[in-house]
Design a binder for these strands. Structure first.
Lengths: 213, 213, 213, 213
DNA sequence: CATGAATGAGAATTCATTCAT
DNA sequence: AATGAATGAATTCTCATTCAT
């Protein structure tokens, strides 16, 4: 049960906390639970993180750090829009696959109201939106069509995260094995869905414009 | 702050609880907070719901009750697959719009581990998957392609829910006004995205088959 | 489980309360538990007994009423001391056998400090000691030997009550069947033990007196 | 009122709890009352005893530990049955005198139904009966006469405990001073009562046997 | 660095009782 | 006579945090 192994105490705390936050949510997890799981003394949480919210803060910072790095990696010098989006989705899926618990905690806790983290959230989300907007615009979408941007952007994110969030249900219901083959197919499917989708939207808008003239 | 109005105490508790759970999450909300907001005595929670989790239980039951009713209403005698899916998405959006907080609470709390609700969750989710699987098959998708079903189905749900979940961000960043016009466009956009998306997937599969033969 | 039968509500409450008090002790039993067991509405306890302690009060009064009646019945016109004591013990055993739960509740709750009942207890115990002192004196004991009176009197009572108090243990350990034959033997044994005992004490005192002179 | 003296917190809690349990009974005493009396923080009860019943558990364990030790000490290499029994009674009286409150709590709470302690009680009582049976048999009683064993054994215990249980009444009514002289006399009286008593019982049985033949 | 005892505020729940019907 | 919703105080227990060692 305990994680008294190789990792440093601080890392053990983070690891244990993330795991428990995924299971029960931040507020439902007690510090004693975390320290027990991490096999550290209870005072270590104050020492390393200045309290329980400090852990969540560290987790969110870690998430945004890695996530934005992933985004930056995803969009260097792409050739076509399609390839760019396919690569982006591939990176996103890989990222969430490699940082599943971290990503789920961030996804779950972000919309919740925790006064101590309000500032951090605004800052990071603003940053994130900046990056993503930049990306999406480079994919040839009409930058003025902010309306659809706000609909489509979040859809893409949610499609990817949702899959990991309900993993245990998918495993039971669809008897899925989450191996490399599955994720290869998953990437292609989401990418195709998304690409065909936005082409369909573009086509429809075109038609509407013509209809108006 | 207080809701000492027309509604019955039990309903006032539910209303206050849902609202607070959306803001902070179930575990972070105290019963005293709920009763204060609902303007009822603290003992009423035991009296009506047999404890705090009883409230969440009632909320989830209410959600599933209404959600499954919505699904059943959505798919009577549709003509074409496209029309059927457009109507389904329309109903889903209307539903989440009319039951935003209820839906968000369910969406947020469902993946969390709360032993007392484990049974309820399994039962309701099983039910829900049954209904949705039936629907999706009626839309002409290959019923054997359970692989893509598990990828695409959740995507649709998450696309709709995500929009409501991050409403406050969207409002601030994209200066959106969530009025009838917005939701008309939202329905059409999501429907088009989804329909074009699955057509794209179908087309790709067709190509792969041909490639193999 | 419920006692919704023949008896009047007030009697049903008393019966249920006595039974529960024996099992768990007065303080550990809640009024809702009693009303549930008695199959009456919760407000009936205020109505009939003016609260929870009122029930215990009624129980103790009932006990003392019956107990003193038993004592008065036990000592009319006895011939010899031995017969008198044997008859007294017989009556005591019969009494506790017929009113086991009532007697156990009284025995258990009497030494406990319940401010509302302090007065009642003093009154009844004083009464009881008066009656018993009268009895014991009539049995030829030296009335001045108050020292031994305080040692021997309570011993007799405790011998009888103890047997009923640990009935379930006796049943399991000694495989006793608590039938008429058992109680016949029990009466004789306790009476003999007690009579021989006090004779032994008297003899010893005699010897000590002689030794001193 | 407070006990902020030499003893360790854990011991102060135990001491305060025992004292209060004697006065009011376990169920009627609140943890706040105990911690106030013991002059410790309320959370210390969870910390040291894992809850209120944990205190009672510790008390009962302490009682049985000491009581069985006393029994074991009482019966080493005695010469005659009479001396053995006199020494046993002497030890019992000394024990209850030195551990009055502990003994009274155990005596009062043992017959009450507290699910969390059921197991402990069965275990300890079984142990105790084992020890006592061994003793009583060594005193020359017919080991097959299990019938009288179950009547006489408890009688002895109750005679000793009763005296301490109703101390305050005895003090008021009989103006007893509970000093060494009193207990010397008490030991001798109970021992004589008991010894003469069982001799009387034995004699009577003898007579019955002869009568039958 | 690390410990674990100790703190006080706050958690959820249950209590006996009351009151309008 | 009887109901059951409603109350507010009190219950036990757990919380995150601190501090002396």
């Amino acid at each position: 049960m305990a994680e008294n192994s190789a990792l440093e105490p601080k890392q053990r705390i983070l690891k244990a906390a993330i795991s428990l936050f995924v299971q029960k949510g931040f507020a439902a997890v007690g510090v004693r639970e975390i320290t027990k799981e991490a096999n550290v003394n209870i005072a270590m949480i104050s020492y390393y993180f200045e309290g329980k919210v400090g852990i969540l803060k560290a987790i969110l910072e870690e998430f945004f750090e890695r996530y934005s790095q992933m985004l930056r990696d995803a969009v260097t010098e792409e050739e076509t829009t399609e390839e760019g989006i396919r690569r982006l989705i591939g990176h996103m899926v890989d990222f969430v696959r490699e940082n599943t618990e971290l990503a789920i905690v961030a996804y779950n806790e972000l919309p919740l109201d925790l006064p101590e983290l309000a500032e951090l959230k605004v800052e990071k989300i603003t940053q994130m939106i900046g990056i993503m907007s930049g990306l999406i615009k480079r994919f040839g979408l009409d930058p003025e069509d902010i309306y659809h941007l706000g609909m489509i952007g979040p859809s893409l994110i949610s499609m990817v995260f949702m899959n990991f969030r309900i993993r245990s249900i998918l495993k039971n219901v669809f008897k899925v094995k989450f191996d490399d083959a599955y994720y290869k197919e998953f990437k292609e499917t989401i990418a195709t869905l998304f690409l065909s989708g936005i082409q369909g939207i573009a086509a429809k808008k075109q038609m509407q414009k013509r209809g108006k003239t």
